[in-house]
Design a binder for these strands. Structure first.
Lengths: 141, 141
DNA sequence: TAATATTACGTATTACGTAAAGATT
DNA sequence: AATCTTTACGTAATACGTAATATTA
């Protein structure tokens, strides 16, 4: 069971026509028919009853339709959730503080932060503290 | 997002090792790494923090893990449900009844049944009723 | 340095598009 | 007769395996 097969199946189920479904999916309609056939093979039988004016869902197709929809929705949702984390894992952070306090408080904080967000570049505005500068160097480029 | 990518991801998450996950999935470990990388690309960032002794899940990986598991389980469940219909959608049915009652009760029942199970051949034992015989003819071959 | 992940590249599988054929009302 | 699905076949994209390289504790 492949992702695009589910997309093709949903398109045919919605439009009722293989040809129109193929256009909607940006594939040729023979290619779409082959993929539907493979899916039907895996599911033990036909999903559509073929007629002159398209395909009607069989009992198997009816039971499979909501499941396929749910699977694709779940994929979309999972992808969006994962991408939503991007704002916190990639980018630059500019940081400024008073030299005296920063020298003692920042190093452990920076170490932990870099461990959990290794892709974020941390840039220090005030470099009057050698400890901080050295600590930042360890992070690599 | 492809099916096998989800399988590979789950294997790495479970074992914690790319090499062992590859064996478990019957693919070479470089191939598995490439597919994981593609998935990470689509999800906006890394799913694992690579170390010498395997991969630890990142925050993104943690959020994606239960989603991936659910998607694959849903696929398996949908496939089994669809295959379970095979016994009811293909085959033959032999039917016998008393001519007088059958003549009035069977036609609507047969019509509905043939609509929901078009691939099942219905065979009538007692053909003394012309109405029933005509009704069966309408179903095609 | 030892164990692992990653990259490079040639190969094989797979999906695709076009064109012809088959099927159904 | 007309329209849609299906099959055939050559092509393009994609995943794979092997080998070499890079990385990390």
């Amino acid at each position: 069971m492949e992702t695009h097969q589910l997309r093709y199946f949903l398109a045919v189920a919605q439009t009722g026509l293989f040809t129109q479904a193929a256009k909607q999916c940006n594939v040729s309609q023979p290619s779409l028919s082959v993929q539907i056939a493979k899916l039907e093979d895996e599911l033990g039988g036909p999903l559509f009853e073929r007629t002159r004016k398209g395909g009607r869902l069989t009992a198997r197709g009816e039971t499979f339709l909501p499941r396929a929809r749910k699977i694709l929705e779940e994929m979309e949702s999972a992808r969006e959730d994962a991408k939503a984390l991007s704002g916190l894992t990639l980018g630059k952070v500019s940081l400024g503080c008073m030299p005296t306090t920063g020298a003692h408080l920042l190093p452990p904080i920076l170490t932990a932060f870099r461990k959990s967000h290794p892709k974020i570049q941390v840039q220090l505005k005030e470099e009057s503290s050698p400890d901080l500068a050295r600590d930042l160097e360890q992070g690599g480029s």
